[in-house]
Design a protein around this nucleic acid. Sequence first.
DNA 1: GCAACCATGATCGAGTTCCGCTCGGTGTCG
DNA 2: CGACACCGAGCGGAACTCGATCATGGTTGC
Lengths: 214, 214
Amino acid sequence: MPIGDISGVDAPLPTRVRTEPIQQRSADRLNRLLDSAAEIVDEIGFDRLTTAMIAERAGAAIGTVYRYFPDRIAVLVALRERAVQRFRLRSMQLMRAAGPTSVWDAVDSGITAFVELYRSEPGFRIMHFIDRERMPLSAEEAEPHLAKRLADILEEAIGITHDAELDFRLEIAVEMADAILSRAFAFDRAGDERYIEECRRVVRDYLSSELAAV
Amino acid sequence: MPIGDISGVDAPLPTRVRTEPIQQRSADRLNRLLDSAAEIVDEIGFDRLTTAMIAERAGAAIGTVYRYFPDRIAVLVALRERAVQRFRLRSMQLMRAAGPTSVWDAVDSGITAFVELYRSEPGFRIMHFIDRERMPLSAEEAEPHLAKRLADILEEAIGITHDAELDFRLEIAVEMADAILSRAFAFDRAGDERYIEECRRVVRDYLSSELAAV
DNA sequence: GCAACCATGATCGAGTTCCGCTCGGTGTCG
DNA sequence: CGACACCGAGCGGAACTCGATCATGGTTGC
């Protein structure tokens, strides 16, 4: 199986949609709804985002929004899901290009992908905010956390068998990176390079200590 | 000036209250409102918290809530502010008891205080969530971020002069610690010890590298 | 072939409900 | 009795519902 196949571009998509789109036009509409939401998130932030705005900008009626999403939050969750998929895809591309040999190399590609998307993908900030509290808010397994996705990607990319220990360290690394990178973009739309550099350094140090090269 | 004096227990309190309470009973009411809000945050999360709930649980009318707070978010901000003050106080206590000599020792006390409050203080989770997006959402200086508070505390506790470099490293450390600790409590009300331990280790390693003892 | 047909997916938007917040009137403290 | 504190019906707006309407693509009869 080629390395890109697990990037999941054609996976079942948002978990919480009400109705799977059958016809082509409706799949388009769903994407346009998410695009609208993404733009609005960037423009006014996600708590001021209203379902009416989403509908209007996408040229749809409010009812259409609720055909696909059970509630306002679900739109944001779906938006995050799409962002995660794009992150996966881009990470895989970078990893293939770099031909990483260590966990650290691979994770560095992940950081690069994250930064790129933060800069280019509208509404990517959602990655940091929707996380807990809004999500299932219980049950460990309910949340397919970013770290798990990354572990899967790594397994494919550099043929690592990920045991519980590596999963744990990756989760810590992801938490740290997410926090620092989000700080980098908090007051600077282009992302403060100082924080980004520090993020790479911190994560590399963390992953290389007691883990050496794999 | 004794070390505890900057803990700010009797500082002007929430920045965004509408009316400073004059009579004693109203100060009590304000605290009861915050207590109610804290409980509700723990029970159903802060986006499902409604002003009506706060009022009802505190045995007050809705109008009373709005006598003290301009809007719903202000309640959460005030709640966070109170939590930060208690964090300061507890940190100072622990630092005094430990008689710390290095930045790391002091920060470790901060972590301990944070964990304690996460366990004992209702609604303390708010510390992690209210941060950006909801707050001023622009202007670097507008946000009195936790890292700045910590820097102030350290300055008092171990007489450090905090330059820009230390501020930066502290901010990184705070971001990391906040992220990992919040993860520790995300699915475990008591806080997953493994994450807490890893948090101490990570922060210690980070602060001791290239900074040595102060 | 193809045109009429129709089951079902997709869309619509007025209407309902619920929530944030106001404001003028009523208690209660000093 | 003046100022402080409190009350809660009511207003505006946003989340969400639901029955009516339109579009699509497969089926049927010729």
